[in-house]
Design a protein around this nucleic acid. Structure first.
Lengths: 258, 258
DNA sequence: TGCGCCAATTCCGTAATACGGAATGAGGAT
DNA sequence: ATCCTCATTCCGTATTACGGAATTGGCGCA
């Protein structure tokens, strides 16, 4: 499985990275940086130039990258970087505790799954739910987000929830009662799925916070037959919050490196 | 010139660009975007994943780029983008008017050459001067920069000039006289080389301005035996300023596209 | 202005490598 | 439970990239 590297591609990317590290690089610089023989470098550089990613300044000054490289990275979204940071940490949690995690974000009034360790969990046999999005009103992740986000955003989301079907939070009599429920979630430190009928699974969600903002929610999916929500929180809440904090820290770390 | 392109590299970059355009791409999406057969895509994707630029989300969701792509574009400097914008415009000027142009920027108290059309000019046989840097005190580009930059920066640069050898601007009696000279340059709209002795070449420089800032200076190098500075300005100043403005416009255009 | 050195570039025979049509396998939908 | 779509793997073929050695060309020094 880990054995199909297309050599020229790896080398070209290596050259492009080296070019990107300096304002201008001569052939000699590139040879030193990559260890590739000069004819190979020239061939790859000609290719990069033909594709518009590099330019030859002059025979003596060497080569430089062009604005075209933005086409390779310009579309990178904050979310992708957060997922990059989260993947290994979430995998570690699932390896250690067994239960699958999902990282979700509120968008357009629903929670969408950014990443999930469901496929790696031995304790889970639900389908990996990348396409599914849960309602803010019933899902643990929606409640966690709403409980910990800034008040202005909370009020807006409560409005959206109350406009929907009358389940979960929306079954409460008024906005005041919803606020009270969310305040309780905030005090407790985690949110639990509000299913209309008891389902086979429930979720325990905590926010992933940076300063006052909620970047995402992290949810652990548990079989109801294995334990109660209270027992799950008792056993795993600490590790869950530690993972959330580690994601923010790893993200900041990656920023510092760039 | 029509050099041999390294196919797999071109294809891999094409795939990476396509990946970058969307949050997530399935194999089918990529096939549609690039026109490559699926086995080839899988091989290239495996390579990109091995190099850390891409990640497989899930079999059904497909692939996405990772933060690693920042290594390909993160080092791109503003200057590089300006040069990208300037190259075709400067080439057009030299093709039309014959004389070579150079784009320069003040850094650490001297003017450095960012790009030059000397190699393309039929009227010039000086060596392409990428390594050379001219003194602020004597070069046309230095005067143009100092004449049009904001007052605070001008005063700082006058200090640097007066600390150097007493040639060009530094030969004037005091800072007041330098200010007066630069004011004259500003009124005239262009600066001319101040050689200690008449040299074979002189330069006519104009600023490349964005708002109040001077991004760079654009200089036309002319053989003194061909015409006087006044005649050169009469004939070419309009086109020179048009090129300077076009560079700023192209830069803004590129920003808008990204 | 002319010479000498160093680095960039080109050449070309060799062997490894990427290619992609067709077969297989996995998931989701009905 | 069955079909059907789409991702993935296989494998023979021909093309392609490789890189040591020779060549060119520019720059600095005298």
């Amino acid at each position: 499985m880990p054995e199909p590297p297309v050599t020229p591609v790896l080398r070209a990317l290596q050259v492009l990275e080296a070019l990107n590290r300096k304002a201008a690089s001569s052939l000699g610089d590139l040879k030193a940086a990559t260890g590739l023989p000069k004819p190979t470098l020239v061939r790859l550089l000609d290719t990069l130039i033909a594709a518009g990613y590099a330019a030859r300044i002059s025979p003596t000054e060497g080569y430089r990258v062009t604005g075209q490289v933005l086409a390779l990275a310009g579309g990178l979204r904050f979310i992708d970087r957060m997922v990059d940071a989260a993947v290994p940490l979430m995998a570690a949690f699932t390896r250690e505790h067994g239960w699958p995690l999902a990282l979700t974000k509120v968008r357009d009034g629903v929670s969408v799954v950014l990443h999930s360790t469901v496929p790696q969990s031995p304790l889970s046999f639900e389908r990996a739910g990348y396409n599914t999005s849960s309602l803010l009103a019933t899902g643990a992740v929606g409640q966690a987000h709403m409980a910990f986000c800034p008040p202005e955003e909370r009020q807006r989301l409560i409005g959206i929830v109350q406009a929907g079907t009358r389940v979960g939070l929306a079954a409460l009599p008024d906005a005041r009662a919803v606020e009270a429920h969310l305040a309780a979630v905030r005090r407790r430190g985690y949110a639990v799925t509000l299913s209309p009928r008891p389902a086979k699974l429930f979720g325990i969600a905590v926010p992933v916070r940076q300063g006052r903002n909620v970047l995402a929610s992290l949810v652990m999916r548990v079989l109801r037959s294995a334990m109660t929500p209270e027992a799950a929180a008792e056993r795993h809440l600490g590790a869950l919050n530690a993972t959330a904090r580690a994601i923010v820290a790893a993200l900041a770390q990656a920023d510092r490196a760039a």
